[in-house]
């Protein structure tokens, strides 16, 4: 190894230990592998540099903060798994992470929240209906539509589903869950190979910086 001044060396070690900490969610074998590769990258980038402290500044800046870098790894790996998954929980978690990286991700997250939220709410209503038949239903009146569990009948509105509430709403809830899952998978799969990743530090004039 080329000799690196102790101060520069400790900056690298500090970066790598923060990276390892930020990768806490990753399997330890893979985490070690990532840290090892980033260490090799830093050392290779610095080799032959006439100004090691300057060189270490530059390479760490281009990598982004350890937390950003770890987040990119986590997102790439979640997106890979989620694109072929039907698990609402995984899709929701993935879109939450993805939301931090750009507008498509944010859209996906709100879609997940609203879609799965509606499915969950309606499912709860279906299960509560047998116990509180008069409080659960679908009321229409005054141009309003209320579906779910209400403390009292909305004034002037009448319940329209009656005993059909359970089967109809169960189907609608299921349709919400399936529709949301498919829409999320579609969004995740159609993302550009490199989602809205923008390195906040690296600014380059006149040339494209990815």
């Amino acid at each position: 190894m080329t000799s690196i001044a102790p101060l520069t060396d400790s900056r690298i070690e500090n970066y790598l230990s923060r990276l390892a900490a930020a990768l806490a969610g990753v399997a330890s074998e893979q985490r070690d592998e990532i840290v090892r590769e980033i260490r090799a990258h830093i050392l290779d980038s610095m080799s032959g540099a006439s100004d090691p402290p300057g060189a270490v500044d530059r390479v760490l800046r281009l990598l982004g903060t350890p937390e950003e870098l770890a987040n990119r790894y986590a997102t790439e790996s979640l997106l890979t798994r989620a694109g072929s998954s039907f698990s609402p929980w995984l899709l929701l978690r993935t879109s939450w992470r993805w939301a931090k990286l750009g507008i498509t991700g944010t859209t996906a997250f709100f879609l997940a929240l609203i879609g799965y939220g509606a499915a969950l709410g309606l499912t709860v209503a279906v299960f509560v209906k047998p116990f509180m038949p008069s409080r659960v239903g679908m009321w229409v009146g005054h141009g309003n539509l209320n579906v779910g569990i209400l403390p009292a009948n909305p004034e002037g509105a009448h319940e329209v589903l009656g005993r059909w509430f359970v089967p109809v709403i169960a189907v609608v809830a299921f349709a919400f869950a399936v529709g949301t899952t498919h829409a999320l998978r579609w969004l995740i799969r159609r993302r550009s190979p490199n989602p809205a990743y923008q390195m906040p530090h690296a600014t380059v004039s006149g040339a494209a910086q990815i």
């Binding site: 990532i34 590769e37 980033i38 990258h41 980038s45 390479v59 281009l62 990598l63 982004g64 950003e68 870098l69 990119r72 790894y73 997102t75 790439e76 790996s77 997106l79 890979t80 190979p193 490199n194 990743y197 390195m199 690296a202 380059v204 040339a207 494209a208 910086q209 990815i210």
Partner: peptide
């Protein structure tokens, strides 16, 4: 190709391409 790829972008993508 004059593609200036940020380091912090490349390595996670390599990791995903390998996983795929």
């Amino acid at each position: 190709s004059q593609l200036d790829v940020a380091e912090g972008t490349l390595y996670p993508i390599l990791s995903r391409l390998k996983a795929e």
